[in-house]
Nucleic acid binder design. Structure first.
Ligand code: SF4
Ligand code: SF4
Lengths: 134, 134
DNA sequence: ATAAATAAGATCATTTTTATCCTATATATA
DNA sequence: TATATATAGGATAAAAATGATCTTATTTAT
């Protein structure tokens, strides 16, 4: 019940891009080195972040990554879920039909509410507020 | 980022024992059948629950499981953590030394607080309140 | 044209998860 | 006491998820 390494790397990557600023091109190699992320692996993760519209990938010489949203609009939740998928905590929260008890299971309700609160807490955290991480 | 199957099975097992009542012996086979848990796997999970002092295992003919605490005192958090270990959400929350940024990383703070809130929500849920799941 | 840089698919290693098998042990009861 | 019943516990295994790298292709600045 923990964030995957890929998820953590995604956050660090977006943190670096946020510090550079929206639209500013940063080389993949730089992000990898500065944020301690295996460069090739970062490439994979970046694809997911780009597909989610959070960054843009520029190919070719002088290529790299470019933040596509304002840090003020970018949340920890968006970044994490772009990589690990929507957080649901327990199978039955995502697919109630996976357990015949779900219609009136109190545990199911607890998980559902816990998920909501949890996602809210990650949504409240914007990169604008996170990036002055020194 | 989801509860393991073992964790979910543990909850269902304790749910069944709670409905039977503290101290009441229930056969492993019954719990497995009623709660849709592979019986041998349940055996393994029960060992962890027993080690945590939440239930007792009785060997021999007419053996089985027995709830050792009042459902009012048993929390979802205790059951889940007995099986999957303490919830920490992100590595650096458990071991800050795993990332040199942790001392003043805002993201680290968010994860730490999210973990606290999350654990609280699972701690508030006692089996007394969960078991009238029908 | 060349060099620099990332893309994308394939592949691989490791770890975690989810079990099951098998032998041992404990206990009720005939 | 012998037997049947039921769980313990270690070993093992299959499957899935995770973490990462390799290779070839493609893009783009110069
Ligand atoms: S028993 Fe309740 S919490 Fe568990 S899987 Fe079924 S619906 Fe979900
Ligand atoms: S960057 Fe921050 S959140 Fe990520 S591992 Fe380091 S301390 Fe934790």
């Amino acid at each position: 019940m923990r964030l995957s390494r890929a998820g953590e790397y995604a956050v660090r990557c977006m943190l670096y891009l946020s510090m550079a600023g929206k639209g500013v091109l940063v080389r993949r190699k730089t992000v990898a080195r500065e944020m301690d992320i295996p460069e090739q692996f970062l490439g994979k993760i970046a694809q997911q972040l780009a597909r989610a519209g959070l960054m843009e990938i520029v190919q070719g010489a002088k290529g790299g990554f470019r933040l596509m949203v304002f840090p003020e609009e970018l949340t920890l939740l968006a970044v994490v879920e772009a990589v690990i998928g929507e957080i649901f905590l327990n199978d039955c929260v995502l697919r109630p039909e996976s357990c015949h008890r779900s219609p009136d299971c109190k545990v199911h309700q607890v998980w559902t509410e816990a998920r909501d609160r949890f996602r809210e807490s990650l949504q409240k955290a914007t990169f604008a507020s996170l990036m002055d991480c020194r």
